[in-house]
């Protein structure tokens, strides 16, 4: 396995750069950052529409979320592959197709997370802000969203980890990310498929595990910060028999 890493390490890490486009793990990470980064503002808009009082916003937003979440991601990839060139009017690279798909997919999932975060805030927050004379948009921007998003950071980070895994679908449409690179290695070697795909699995494992740890640390830091503000703890102490 070590020789495979030594010979094909760069291919797996950065694709055929600099002779060709950037690929491998580097591309996987770039696609993930792009996907989540672009999905984030879209998810906020979608979440706000979901809880809007106006049906003209609420109904389509709800429909989009259910649609995107009810269909396999790979089906969405094929839809994008077909629809995006039609909508834009010119051909689109496979990579752009994947990014668009990831953005739409993650926006729908993150919209639910943001919605939950907003709805978890006590009504008193909105009431206080409006009583001070802050308008709807101001209230959102200065009071509601900062708190909701801060609380939802760990969930959003775990969506990023999901996106890293979802980039592997690029393999099906020939985007040269990590899984595609591993496949290329296997096509060259042919006789060591187990090692090649084990390396692939362990690479994802290492990256995602690291990110998961980071998410845990973030969650602990957030809990500590929140606990510092309030004096109550949400531990259930029912059913504790006092040792006599």
């Amino acid at each position: 396995m070590i020789e495979i890493l030594r010979t094909y390490g760069t291919l797996l890490l950065i694709g055929s750069y600099p002779e060709g486009p950037l690929g491998g793990l580097a591309l996987t990470l770039i696609l993930s950052v792009l996907g989540v980064g672009l999905a984030f503002p879209l998810s906020i808009v979608l979440a706000l529409c979901r809880i809007s009082a106006y049906a003209v916003l609420r109904v389509p937003a709800t429909a989009i979320v259910y649609l995107v979440r009810g269909v396999p991601l790979i089906m969405l990839v094929f839809w994008s592959y077909y629809l995006v060139p039609v909508l834009i009017g010119r051909t689109v690279s496979a990579m752009s197709t994947l990014v668009v798909t990831l953005v739409v997919y993650q926006a729908a999932y993150m919209a639910e997370i943001v919605r939950a975060g907003i709805e978890a805030l006590p009504n008193g927050q909105t009431e206080a802000a409006r009583s001070l004379g802050l308008g709807y948009a101001r209230t959102l921007q200065a009071v509601i969203l900062p708190q909701a998003l801060f609380n939802m950071l760990p969930s959003l980070l775990s969506q990023f980890i999901s996106t890293v895994k979802e980039t592997s679908l690029g393999y099906v449409i020939s985007v040269q990310e990590l899984t595609f690179a591993a496949n290329e290695v296997n096509s060259s070697l042919l006789i060591r498929p187990f090692e090649v795909y084990l390396i692939l699995s362990l690479t994802y494992f290492a990256v995602c595990l690291l990110l998961t740890r980071a998410a845990h640390l973030l969650e602990t830091a957030i809990l500590r910060r929140r606990a510092g503000r309030s004096t109550t703890h949400a531990y259930a102490t029912h059913d504790q028999v006092q040792p006599g």
Partner: peptide, 8 residues
């Protein structure tokens, strides 16, 4: 959980 289904 840390490895995509495609890789599995």
């Amino acid at each position: 959980r840390n490895i995509p289904v495609v890789a599995h």
